[in-house]
Design a protein around this nucleic acid. Structure first.
Lengths: 195, 195
DNA sequence: TTGACATACACACATTTGTGTGGTATATTA
DNA sequence: TAATATACCACACAAATGTGTGTATGTCAA
């Protein structure tokens, strides 16, 4: 699957948003109107480009027959591990994609599979998926994803005592973490599946 | 929201299935072909009936502009309580509807909001939603929804000892239940949201 | 028995919509 | 330097598609 140009992404985003608002795909002219293209030919050029690159399917001679192929831009990635390079945050080892309800679906979210049992008292078990909203601050008692000095991501409860923030696990077997950390995001949802 | 007739349900089902297979709604003629109506007028009559009864929205002069309104037939109901009458099972106090991924969406599923803390050791907390697949049997160690004699539904682990089945909570504060029960379904997923 | 509703059909008509064909311009790649 | 991709435009045309206006039959409640 090749990369999309900026403009092509804009077109795909428009189709995505139109779908969310209308629950059916737009026509060529509706895309043109929305993105200020005065020619239907322009839109068709974009659609064929998106098709060629594997992001959509289109059917001939059918109105609104645009299908966005899953696992594209807008699904929430499931991170295997999280690292922070010198500049930016990197979510690596994408293990797959979650497809969630609209009301949960935001651009700034990702999912993380839980390792270990340090949060079991809060009902977050090993193997659970947590949906994380990226944000750099959080409130005390929020369940957050924090990045430690060791470049390791961990899910813990944010606590404050004597004006010092620390990370508290939800399992008496483990001790609170008082070292430096950065907040990556807040856990907004937990999803578990039984086979 | 009024009731649908049998035929009207058939039309709504057809639209629903078409949507699942094509990811865009059908045209009037496609509905007619699928349901063996020789006239476009017939289909339009059904669409206006479905619209009047609040199950779909349609836009004028727009192709395939049929929108199935949420909270209709096919979403998973969130049950407030479950009772068993003499004949059939009744899910009551519908609190709302869950909209889930296709791969989770089946006709024979419903969701239940957890009351109490009897399953916390399995990571099922008060307020969580559990998605339940209706079935009358289950395997030992499955987490199930059982209906007790008292006509009360409960989520517990199915255990077997000395050839006797019983219901075990996942919290030492509570004792296992040895009375008679019926299996309503199996918990296949847990969903929790933090505000 | 009148009115409302459900269940169908036929078919002309107007609008919507995708397609075809032809342009222009720029940038990148082989 | 030629080929390819990107990024637009204009517009006619045919096919797809919704709408309008009829007709017919049966049921059920007021």
């Amino acid at each position: 699957m090749k990369e999309l140009t900026y403009k092509q992404k804009e077109v795909l985003k428009f189709i995505w948003n139109y779908l969310k608002n209308h629950s059916h795909p737009p026509t060529i002219r509706e895309i043109g109107d929305g993105l200020k293209f005065s020619s239907t030919g322009t839109v068709r050029d974009y659609l064929t480009a998106l098709k060629r690159k594997g992001f959509i399917k289109i059917q001939q001679n059918k109105s609104r027959a645009i299908e966005i192929i899953k696992r594209s831009l807008f699904h929430i990635p499931i991170a295997g591990s999280i690292h922070a390079g010198p500049a930016d945050l990197a979510i690596e080892d994408i293990q797959g994609y979650l497809e969630l309800d609209d009301f949960m679906l935001k651009d700034d979210m990702f999912a993380l599979r839980i390792k270990g049992d340090s949060m079991t008292d809060s009902g977050i078990m090993e193997g659970d998926l947590v949906v994380v909203k990226r944000q750099e601050t959080a409130l005390t008692n929020d369940i957050i994803v924090a990045l430690l000095n060791s470049n390791e991501a961990t899910v813990k409860i944010l606590r404050k005592k004597d004006n010092i923030f620390f990370l508290e696990p939800a399992n008496k077997k483990y001790e609170s973490i008082y070292q430096d950390f950065n907040i990556i995001g807040k856990v907004v949802s937990v999803i578990r599946r039984y086979r």
